[in-house]
Design a protein around this nucleic acid. Structure first.
Lengths: 232, 232, 232, 232
DNA sequence: GATGAATGAGATTTCATTCAT
DNA sequence: AATGAATGAAATCTCATTCAT
């Protein structure tokens, strides 16, 4: 019943808030379009209100469908949430699969990886919020997902290759675990985006000012490269 | 027995789940204690289910009070949530105020700061979850809080002093912004704790194994110190 | 069976208490009829218990609907109350619009107006109670109603014409303000109905005995006609 | 336990809203004062919100007492309501007992009676509202009152004497029943005050403008005197 | 008498889900 | 497949009344 859908959900930060709001013509017979429309609306809802705060009515209200359709396609609130979660994970995996580090020097490759990671979070606030939600619930929904088993971590493989090349060129030191490093990179980027509202209040700075984003990008790359650097 | 009413809320990770479960004798008139008991139960509820998923009934169920008391003390679900949030922020501020870096060399001070930060998040998963929740809701509740205005950020001042001393001793290079650095430190520690469930699934590792925690602590200190280090 | 959905609410004193009690077959999809059924039950409830004493449960209990439907149709207790109020005002306006004084002599027209007014109050105790309720609350709900602005007072126009004709025939004297006169007529009839319970107790008479009603009708017409009469 | 209290409640329209609001010094030992203060606050509450809408908390909140005291003095919400009702009836009875028609010509006596009645309602809006409330509830509370049995209707006796004197002087015609006449007088005055909010909205006039009140007073006296007049 | 704290029962309102067509 | 109407269960919140001191 659940089709593997190649279309992407919430690709851009701006798009994902707008897309669901603009309704298309009613009564159009296009199941896949409808399903997607519902999924996008659900993403918006779950990612801004959390699982418990999300309302099926709201999700349907932004679309051209009705509640019976929503249930017809997704079965229940929980299944809908899981479908959204799977979409969101599939989205980042696809993006990661597309990056190519091959023409770059190891330090430049690292810079690109850091930049990509930060950029992806910034462009996909819903992704960030869904992850937070999942962790709030100790990932019970993710565990229930069947497609999660298929989650590859090709990015770790790619990072491993970069490190290896860096060692060979003498740019990087040995003994760095790629997963551990990836978690560091993710952490530096993720919290900045995830916690931007509270951090902005506590530190009385707007963390999303262009100049601030720029500075952060530099700090991050700097920190990672200095961490990897040989010598001294 | 209970702790004296000046006890802090959710001080330790283990304590915060247990505390609310231990009931007091009925009919004991101790408003302050009751208030605290309700607050602890609310912290547990909000931090595990989110604002929308939290149930007033559940909060009350774990205590010796009843819903009427809960509303009498806190007014509404929203006000209760804000009270919890304020407690949680007050808690970390108090802890930060207590750390003393004065007897330590600059590198050791950094190590202690990193360790403290990581440790605090690990010991206070509810704090981490509340922050995530707030960010999910774009910090609307935090903005509504009056006491948040009074939130000082003495930790930034302290970090600034460490950096200054490090420059004087020649350990650290110049030009590092304390707030920017603090955000990096927080990020490295926070995401590891905040996202531990999803990360554990995706990377198929238990991030909270003692050996893993140990390794992370080392990586973090290492990364920060290499970032600050002078010379090439 | 039920009346056709264009039927009016609370048309007759007896009817209005009975109507809501006769349940329709379950699962019949007839939104307009359901809405009306709820409205009639609400009229009964509000008019016998007042706004504060009315219970949404009771209102629903007399119908084939449930609370969710009630809220779906009317939004809130307050909006339901206002809907009832509007219905009740629309009802008397419709009835007033239907009276025709044209074939009658001016004194007979006055007699008919007085009789109609008295009769309407007697037949619609819920109307009387709703008005009392509104005044108890300083008409805050009426002020909130949008449809009340559209309330015409054609009865005043009609009374004005009767007075004019009476002046022309020499039956009535000049200088009587129709609104002022209408308020007198209303007063004579209204209080008798509105306060019948307390008056009956205080004066130890049953004011609603047929002979008493008859006498009152005569007194009222007499009083108004003598007030209007020319000569000495 | 309940003392017969000679003090008056809600004597003037203005006073009754203010009195309860201005709290006296706390902890004063003056049971009778306290009881009265509670009673006045209760009158304000019941007469503006109805029985069902009145809140014991609000009643107590405006006084220097607490809820336990309220219950100590009055037993229950219902008993409190009845106590208020009795006070209110006792008040008008006292006032009626005080009027003296003896030095006046029969027409002047009627004018005074009409003026007194109208004036009393205007000065005691709470009285009017309490009566409306009672009738909303079909006077169940009044029937439950013990002191109501003692309610005399000396005003009817006085009116009877006026009528008798008027017949003797040739001013008034015979055959008028004093109670029936009194109900007419009351009706003319009562509805004007009782329904002033709805009437003002429907007729788009402020019925309580001094000029309007003046006109009404004249209309009423005029109507009654013409009704009683001999000749023609 | 006097007080502040406490509470059970019940009020209004909401929500995920299902039904009849 | 598609829809608008419907609903049971449960959520948040309130209130008259009582308790312990």
């Amino acid at each position: 019943m659940r089709r593997s859908s190649s279309a992407r959900i919430g690709v851009a930060g701006a798009a994902e808030t707008d897309a669901a709001a603009r309704p298309v013509a009613p009564y159009e017979r296009a199941p896949e379009r409808r399903r997607r429309e519902l999924l996008e609306s659900a993403l918006l809802e779950f990612s801004t209100k959390g699982y418990g705060g999300a309302r099926m009515d709201q999700i349907v209200g932004r679309t051209n469908s009705n509640k019976a359709m929503l249930y017809h396609y997704f079965g229940s609130k929980e299944e809908l949430y899981i479908a959204v979660l799977e979409e969101v994970y599939a989205g980042i995996r696809r993006s990661e699969d597309e990056i190519d580090f091959d023409g770059l020097s190891p330090p430049d490759a690292i810079r690109r990886l850091v930049g990509f990671t930060f950029g992806y979070y910034i462009d996909h606030p819903s992704f960030v919020r869904m992850i937070n939600n999942e962790n709030l619930h100790a990932a019970v929904f993710l565990k229930r997902s069947k497609s999660v088993a298929a989650l590859n971590t090709s990015i770790i493989v790619k990072l491993g290759r970069i490190l290896q090349r860096g060692i060979e060129t003498g740019d990087f030191r040995k003994g760095i675990d790629p997963t551990d490093l990836y978690i560091s990179i993710t952490g530096l980027a993720y919290t900045y985006v995830s916690n931007r509202h509270t951090l902005s209040i506590v530190f009385k700075r707007d963390l999303f000012r262009p100049s601030m984003l720029q500075a952060r990008r530099r700090t991050m790359a700097d920190m990672v490269l200095r961490y990897l650097a040989t010598g001294r």
